[in-house]
Design a protein around this nucleic acid. Structure first.
Length: 302
DNA sequence: CCATGTTTAGCAGCTT
DNA sequence: AAGCTGCTAAACATGG
C-alpha cells in the first residue's frame, strides 16, 4: 500500500513505517515487532526490490519498490493474501530485473507520469513524500468501492449486507481506488501495470464501471476487482480471522483498528473474505487489537 | 550508535 | 497429512 501510494512508486523504509503508523494507529505501538517483520518481508520477498538512492538523495537505506512482475500476485485485489508466491523468474524479460535498471525504469515512468499529469492539467502532488494524501483528498470519481481504503477506515462502515461496524480513526486515505489504476500501465506496455497503472487516472476520466451485480450480498466482488484489462488493481487490508483476545494496544480508541494488510479482525474490514463468506460474527474490540500479524505480505520460506 | 538489511527458525492457520 | 503462507523473534552484517 505504501509503495503503491507513493508518487514514484518507491519509498524508503522510514517512509513505509510512517505510512503505516499514520494510517493505522495499531502500529504506533510495538514498533519493534512489526518493523522487524516489515524489514524481513521486504528483503525476503522477491516482490519487493531495492532501488539504490541517487547521489542527490542522500540518506540511509535504499528505496523499496514493487517488482515489475508482481502485479498479478494478489487475489481479488486483496492485499491480505497472495494468489501465489511471487518468485522472480529468470525468463522474466518484460521488466527490469536489476535494481539499477528498475530504478531507471521507475524514474523514467515517474517522469512520464508527471509530464502526462502536467499536460492534462491534473493537480500534481504538492509534496512528493507526502503524496499519500494524509490530509485527505477527495477521489476524483464518485465511485466508492466497498473495499476502498477510505471505506474501510471510515469510522462507520455499513456492509452492503447491512452489517455495520465501527472502524478506526477517521484517517483520511487516498489509497488509489480501482478507477485510478486502470489502463495506462498496460498501454505503456510496461509489464508493471499495477505499479504504473495509477498513471491511468491522468487521462482516464472514466472510472471502471462496477455494476452492483458484481458484488455479492456481503460486498465481495463476484468478479475479480483487480483484473480489469488483465491487471491488478489496488487492494485493501483484509482480515482473515479474528485473533485471540488481548489487551487493547490503544484503549482510548473508540473502535477496532484495522491492521494494515492482513489479520485484521473481521469486524474491521468489509473486505474480509471470511466476512464475506463464512465469518458472520464480528470480533470484539479486544480481538481487534491483538494480532499485529499482518501487513507485510511476507513470504516465509521454510 | 542506530537504522537498515539479510537470513534462519519456529509456530499457527489455511489450503490442497 | 503435507505443504504453503504469514508473522514474529533473533542473530548478524552493513553503512550513515
Amino acid at each position: 500500500m505504501a509503495i503503491q501510494s507513493s508518487p514514484e512508486k518507491m519509498l524508503p523504509l522510514s517512509e513505509i513505517y510512517k505510512f503505516i503508523m499514520d494510517r493505522f494507529p495499531y502500529y504506533r505501538e510495538n514498533t519493534q515487532r512489526w518493523q522487524n517483520s516489515l524489514r524481513h518481508n521486504l528483503s525476503f520477498n522477491d516482490c519487493f526490490i531495492k532501488i539504490p538512492r541517487r547521489p542527490d538523495q542522500p540518506g540511509k537505506g535504499s528505496f523499496w519498490a514493487l517488482h515489475p512482475s508482481c502485479g498479478d500476485m494478489f487475489e481479488n485485489g486483496s492485499f491480505l493474501r497472495r494468489r501465489k508466491r511471487f518468485k522472480v523468474l529468470k525468463s522474466d524479460h518484460l521488466a527490469p530485473s536489476k535494481p539499477a535498471d528498475a530504478a531507471q525504469y521507475l524514474q523514467q515512468q515517474a517522469k512520464l507520469r508527471l509530464s502526462a499529469l502536467a499536460a492534462s492539467g491534473t493537480h500534481l502532488p504538492q509534496m512528493p513524500t507526502a503524496a499519500y494524501n494524509l490530509g485527505g483528498v477527495a477521489q476524483p470519481s464518485g465511485f466508492k468501492h466497498p473495499f476502498a481504503i477510505e471505506n474501510i477506515i471510515a469510522r462507520e462502515y455499513k456492509m452492503p449486507g447491512g452489517l455495520a461496524f465501527s472502524a478506526m480513526q477517521p484517517v483520511p486515505a487516498a489509497y488509489p481506488l480501482p478507477n485510478q489504476l486502470t489502463t495506462m500501465g498496460s498501454s505503456l506496455g510496461t509489464g508493471w501495470p499495477h505499479v504504473y497503472g495509477s498513471a491511468g487516472m491522468i487521462d482516464s476520466a472514466t472510472p471502471i464501471s462496477m455494476a452492483s451485480g458484481d458484488y455479492s450480498a456481503y460486498g465481495v466482488p463476484l468478479k475479480p476487482l483487480c483484473h480489469a484489462a488483465g491487471q491488478t488493481l489496488p487492494a485493501i487490508p483484509v482480515p482473515i480471522k479474528p485473533t485471540p483476545a488481548a489487551v487493547p494496544a490503544l484503549p482510548a480508541l473508540p473502535a477496532p483498528i484495522p491492521t494494515l494488510l492482513s489479520n485484521s479482525p473481521p469486524s474491521l474490514s468489509p473486505t474480509s473474505s471470511q466476512t464475506a463468506t463464512s465469518q458472520s460474527s464480528p470480533a470484539t474490540p479486544s480481538e481487534t487489537l491483538t494480532s499485529p500479524a499482518s501487513a507485510l505480505h511476507s513470504v516465509a520460506v521454510h
